[in-house]
Lab assay of single mutants.
Amino acid sequence: MEVRTIKVFTTVDNINLHTQVVDMSMTYGQQFGPTYLDGADVTKIKPHNSHEGKTFYVLPNDDTLRVEAFEYYHTTDPSFLGRYMSALNHTKKWKYPQVNGLTSIKWADNNCYLATALLTLQQIELKFNPPALQDAYYRARAGEAANFCALILAYCNKTVGELGDVRETMSYLFQHANLDSCKRVLNVVCKTCGQQQTTLKGVEAVMYMGTLSYEQFKKGVQIPCTCGKQATKYLVQQESPFVMMSAPPAQYELKHGTFTCASEYTGNYQCGHYKHITSKETLYCIDGALLTKSSEYKGPITDVFYKENSYTTTIK
């Protein structure tokens, strides 16, 4: 009895394709271990004539594949690729409408935090270190965002349907971005203890939790000093293409032309909904596939993004 075979390709990165001759009487799992086709788990399936010449994702289970996976995804987590594939199996079914010149995501599976993050990423200057993220990001900007969303979920250790947080998501993504040249110098002034300067680099240099107003941050924000008295913390120097200011959701007025974009969060910790506000020729609110415009805006804002380049204080 002759062994019926077909020729397929296996890959971990969709760049390096490895030619395989597979036995049609055995499952993919018996031949390769966990195997995925377009995100779908085909591990328990036997090869079919229609699979001839198709590319299958496999887990990096030998040295060659491990090197290829690390170079593309910059992670050695053995569960990463499987999590990416199972997320992709959902995100490829989502709709990605162009809204006001940006790629958004039609609401499904509690994905409003991903839509808000995706919209924000198209408006701030950011370059990702893992080629996987950078490639998928370019495709997302062009309207094909399924891979990018699935990668975000995998890097953030999230599953489809789980509630997510924009600030946490951005923080994970910033860790995989090139923020080497970003720098922030802060000064804390206390009447009792004097003053202390701190220099922050990388992710810490672009994120701040405690106030939404970048102007206020430049002037000074009140913080408790270690001595128990009130101290003032203010920005001395900022070198970065953008800054992200966050605070627990509270009524906040966004003035046209003073910011790049913002995240609105309605609801409580267990259950809520994100919308995205962007400042173009007027203010726009993007909620999944829905767009509304207004000249002014007041609502429960939790993150505001500002364009920056270089700032030095005039406070002496």
Rank of each mutant, 00 (worst) to 15 (best):
N14V: 04
A108W: 02
C227L: 02
A115S: 14
K280T: 09
Y269K: 09
L173Y: 00
G272P: 11
N100L: 07
E52V: 11
N178C: 09
K158V: 04
Q31Y: 07
Y155K: 00
G101S: 03
A177R: 06
P131N: 01
A140Q: 00
D77M: 02
S295R: 12
K255T: 08
R139C: 10
V99N: 02
E52R: 12
T169D: 00
G33T: 01
G210Y: 02
T313V: 10
N61E: 15
V185L: 07
E162A: 12
H48R: 10
T312W: 09
T75M: 09
F70Y: 09
Q31K: 08
K93Q: 08
V185Y: 07
T103V: 00
G101W: 01
H256F: 06
L179Q: 05
S79A: 06
M85W: 06
S279F: 00
T10S: 10
P224V: 12
A145L: 03
C261W: 02
T192D: 09
Y172I: 15
I124G: 00
D77F: 01
K316F: 14
I286V: 06
Y172T: 15
V42W: 15
E239C: 11
K191I: 03
P47M: 02
V3F: 08
T10N: 08
K307D: 11
V166Q: 01
H90C: 10
F56T: 00
K201N: 10
T103K: 01
L283S: 08
K127I: 07
F80N: 03
N110F: 01
M24P: 11
L118Y: 03
Q98K: 11
A146N: 01
N16M: 01
G299L: 06
L114G: 05
Q196I: 07
E308I: 12
D109T: 02
E144M: 05
A247N: 08
A250L: 14
Y57N: 14
R141A: 09
T27G: 05
Y234S: 09
H51K: 01
K127T: 10
A117V: 14
F242D: 04
L118F: 14
Y284F: 01
L153D: 01
G194C: 04
E253I: 13
A108Q: 13
T313R: 14
L119M: 06
K219A: 14
L133M: 11
T198I: 10
G257Y: 04
H48E: 10
V58T: 12
K233A: 13
F259H: 06
T91S: 02
Q238G: 09
Y274T: 07
D303Q: 06
Y269C: 12
Y155T: 01
D23C: 12
Y311G: 08
Y57S: 03
Y306W: 04
D77I: 03
Q216E: 04
R184S: 11
S171Y: 15
Y311N: 10
T11P: 01
D109C: 02
Q230L: 14
Y214A: 04
Y311S: 09
V22F: 03
Y96K: 04
T211L: 08
L283Q: 02
K46C: 11
L151W: 02
G299H: 05
N147A: 13
S79I: 08
F174R: 02
M245E: 01
Q238I: 02
A250F: 08
T159D: 15
L153W: 01
S171F: 08
Y72W: 08
C193M: 01
N14R: 12
L81I: 15
T120E: 05
I315K: 08
L254C: 05
K275A: 08
A205G: 04
E168P: 03
V189L: 11
V203I: 13
N147R: 11
T302Y: 04
T64L: 13
H276M: 13
R4E: 04
P241Y: 02
A136Q: 08
T103Y: 10
P300E: 15
R139I: 02
C149P: 01
A177P: 01
Q238C: 01
R4C: 09
Y113W: 15
L119Q: 03
I152G: 01
K307V: 13
A205S: 09
E281S: 08
E52S: 13
G267L: 15
Y73W: 00
S279N: 06
